[in-house]
Every structure is written in C-alpha cells, then in structure tokens.
C-alpha cells in the first residue's frame, strides 16, 4: 500500500486443503462422484461431470445421448445461477445494493428450479457414472421452458438496471485491468480469460456432453476490467438461455444411463468440462479392484489466482472487493 493504491498483493493459499485427491484413491470409484461434487461447491455438477467423463473414458463407455443432453442442461443451469449471483454481488461491492437484491432474487428462482429437476438446489446427487440419475419428464421440461420465459424479461430489466447506473459503471470501468498479454502469459482461463482477450471455451473448441449439437457464441472482450468480466457473465447468460432452449427443442429419447462395468486397471484418461468459472480437468489412472490409483484435479481457479495479484496493482483498496468478486475464484477448488 502507498496511501490508497495497492502496490503488491501476496496470496496465501491452501488453508482449506482437504486431501481430496488422495481420498479418490481410497473410495470406490462410484463414491468418487459424490466426492467430486464437494471439491468446489458452486461447481458441483461441473466437477462431478468432469470426473464422470474421465472414468467413462477409462472404461471405454459413453453416456447415452439423452444423458449428455441432460448434463448440458444442468451445466448451463449451474452457469446461470452463479453468473446471476455474481452480477449482483459485483454491484453490491460498489454500493449498488438494490441490484444485488434483484440478482439474489433471480438466483433463488434458479436454485429452486435446480431442486425441482434434480432434488438438490446445487444439482448434487444428479451426476453418476454412465449418465445422470434422474430423467426429466415432459412436466419438468415445461417448468424449464416456463422459467426461461419468466427469466428473459426479468433478466433484461436487471441488465437495464445495472446499465443505467452511471455510478456503478464509473466504478467498474478501467478497474482491475488484466491486460490480454498478462492473461496469456499466466494462462488465465474461463470467463476471466475471455474478458481479457483469451478466446477459448471448451464447449466450442472441444465439445463435450451435447455442445456439438447446439449453436452459441463465445463472448470475448479485450479491455480486461471488472466491467468486462461483468459483461462476459451477462452475455453468457443470454447464450445459456439460448442453449437451454435448443437442447429442450431437440432432446433425444432413450435411456439416461448406461452401465459402466468394472474398470480395467492401468488405464489413464482425461475428463473435462467448461464450468461457469472456466475449464475443469480430471485426470485419472485406474487400479485393480474398480479403484483409482490417482486422480488429479485442476479447477480453473488454480491458474487464475495469480491474475488477481496482477489485476489489483495500482487500484485503490475500496475497489478490491469488486475486483476480487469479478474473478470469484474458489478456495476449495484450488486447495482441494
């Protein structure tokens, strides 16, 4: 610090290291799905699905088309509820509390939809090896469609509320800038990367689940400030709503789960998912007895944390909460 501006930020991580990777080696592989849900709580479904992708690949099976479509629906719901909450929270950190209340109101409806579809507000218990545990019936899909019809004007009004607030824009523009070249050098991924010119998205570049069947664009900005990280979230919510409509429109029939037999030992496989924060990787090596010899987890937060130390430099202390929130990185996902 030198008066108000921040000169240097040092991160001290790994306070919540829980030994998760080691634990995967002790648990039966099926229980690993539940553990993956608890690696980073706000990305429960993305983490569990990335783990499932890895194990399914090691076993040489693929989830049926309907399961892949339902996974896509859940991944997009996870993205929407987190982005809604974050958009409000960023505004809250620059004293626009009303926007936060609207954001939380919209997020709550998303969480309740999650519960209606999967029995859990955070989509827990939905993922399983070989597909998903619960099918969505016509009534459930109707609920999603109805919720989308409700959300669209509500979200539009929410966006307008933030856009009209010149005080908010004044605080967010040119704040916490992460330059594209710095983002590239640090290997910043996900929405923080896309706000700083890194045009990468696993959903488009290496389609998993049902993403090869839907059309969407990947919003990219080059300014790299808090305002653009907010804008990436805003645009992604619009895209997610479009993806949900498309998936519901062409949902394949059939089973939602396939049998994953005993894992062959000594295989290695990589599973990945573009979570709301960025790319999530699970690398597994199988062991005899349907167990894992190793499970390596990489949450997007891991390589994005150093970006925060760069983005905050020269900013004033009162802007730190907003800059931090605009990245919204996971301690637990990093520390595992």
């Amino acid at each position: 610090m030198a008066g108000e501006p921040v000169l240097y930020l040092q991160l001290r991580m790994f306070y919540v290291h829980k030994g998760a990777e080691k634990l995967f080696e002790d648990l039966p592989v099926g229980h690993g799905v539940r553990l993956a849900e608890s690696v980073s709580g706000d990305s429960s479904f993305a983490h569990a699905t990335a783990f499932c992708h890895a194990v399914e690949r090691a076993a040489g099976v693929e989830a049926p088309p309907r399961a892949r479509a339902l996974r896509t629906i859940c991944l997009e719901l996870e993205r929407i509820y987190n982005h809604l909450g974050d958009m409000g929270a960023i505004c809250n950190d620059v004293a626009f509390a009303t926007a936060n209340m609207h954001g939380m109101r919209l997020k709550e409806r998303a969480l309740r939809l999650n519960e209606l579809l999967t029995g859990s507000r955070l989509l827990r218990g939905m993922a399983c090896l070989g597909g998903v545990r619960y099918d969505f019936e016509a009534a459930h899909l109707d609920e999603v469609a109805q919720w989308l019809r409700w959300l669209k004007p509500e979200f539009e009004a929410f966006v307008e509320l933030i856009r009209e607030s010149s005080g908010t824009r004044d605080r967010l523009e040119t704040t916490g800038v992460l330059k594209p070249e710095v983002a590239r050098d640090l290997g910043v991924v996900g929405l923080a990367g896309r706000a700083s010119g890194q045009d990468r998205d696993l959903r488009r570049d290496f389609p998993h689940a049902f993403y090869d069947q839907v059309r969407f664009t990947v919003p990219v900005f080059t300014e790299g400030d808090v305002q653009r990280r907010l804008a990436v979230r805003r645009e992604e919510i619009y895209q997610s709503m479009g993806i949900l409509e498309q998936v519901i429109g062409k949902l394949p029939e059939g089973p939602v789960r396939t049998v994953v037999g005993e894992l062959p030992p000594g295989r290695t496989a990589l599973g990945y998912v573009e979570g709301w924060r960025g790319e999530i990787f699970y690398w597994v090596r199988t062991a005899p007895g349907n167990r894992l010899a190793r499970c390596k987890i990489k949450d997007p937060s891991l390589q994005n944390w150093p970006a925060l130390t760069e983005a905050i430099l020269g900013n004033i202390i009162p802007d730190f909460p907003a800059v931090n929130k605009s990245f919204n990185l996971s301690y637990s996902g990093t520390d595992r």
């Binding site: 608890s38 690696v39 709580g41 706000d42 429960s44 909450g85 209340m101 997020k107 969480l111 507000r121």
Partner: peptide, 15 residues
C-alpha cells in the same frame, strides 16, 4: 475447510 456449497446457501440468508 468448506467446499463453499454451504456458503452459497448461507449467502442466501442475506438475500
């Protein structure tokens, strides 16, 4: 040492 799932719901209490 939470996975922050509980925090998602605790934050909900302030909404």
């Amino acid at each position: 040492g939470s996975c922050n799932g509980c925090e998602v719901e605790i934050v909900g209490l302030t909404g």
